[in-house]
Amino acid sequence: KRPMNAFMVWAQAARRKLADQYPHLHNAELSKTLGKLWRLLSESEKRPFVEEAERLRVQHKKDHPDYK
């Protein structure tokens, strides 16, 4: 399984919050909304998630050196 990218790291927590706020939204609508919200974030707001995704990528490479 591939490591999560920055969006997926962020969306993991954001999806729970959004689903709690809008329990009537279908998963497809949640995903579209999350995409729009992510694009509205500034680079500095995204930075911690980009850094975490990079950490996960490096760890994955270490754990699975033959993964392509």
Rank of each mutant, 00 (worst) to 15 (best):
A11L: 05
L18H: 02
P48I: 03
K46D: 04
E54C: 08
A11Y: 03
R39F: 02
E54W: 01
H60T: 10
H26C: 09
T33W: 15
L40D: 15
W38L: 06
E43Y: 05
H24F: 03
M8I: 11
A6E: 01
E43T: 12
F7M: 12
D66S: 08
H26Q: 13
M8V: 12
L18W: 06
L18K: 01
E29G: 13
E51Y: 04
H24K: 15
G35A: 07
F7Q: 02
Q12C: 01
P3H: 05
W10R: 01
M4K: 13
A19V: 08
Y22R: 13
A14P: 00
K62M: 13
M8W: 13
E51G: 08
W38I: 00
K62E: 08
E43A: 13
A13F: 02
G35P: 01
L18V: 10
L56T: 10
H64P: 14
P3T: 11
S31N: 11
K68P: 09
R39K: 13
L40A: 15
F7E: 01
L30M: 03
L41R: 08
E29D: 06
H64V: 14
K62D: 14
E54Q: 07
Q21I: 12
K68R: 11
Q21P: 01
R2P: 04
P23Y: 13
D20Y: 04
H24I: 02
H24C: 04
S31R: 11
S42P: 15
A13L: 05
P48Q: 06
N5Q: 01
P3G: 13
V58F: 02
K68T: 02
Q21D: 06
Y22N: 04
E29P: 14
F49Y: 10
K62S: 09
W38T: 06
H64N: 15
M8Y: 07
K61N: 12
K46Y: 00
H26S: 15
L30C: 03
L25W: 10
E51Q: 07
S42C: 04
H24A: 08
R39G: 06
V58R: 07
D66E: 13
D66L: 04
H60C: 07
K1N: 10
A28T: 13
R57P: 08
A13I: 04
G35Q: 06
P3N: 04
K36T: 03
Q21H: 04
L30G: 02
S31K: 05
L56Y: 12
K62R: 09
M8A: 12
E51I: 01
K17V: 03
E54L: 05
R2V: 01
A28N: 11
N5K: 14
R2D: 06
E51D: 08
A19L: 13
R16F: 00
V9H: 10
F7W: 06
R55P: 12
H60S: 12
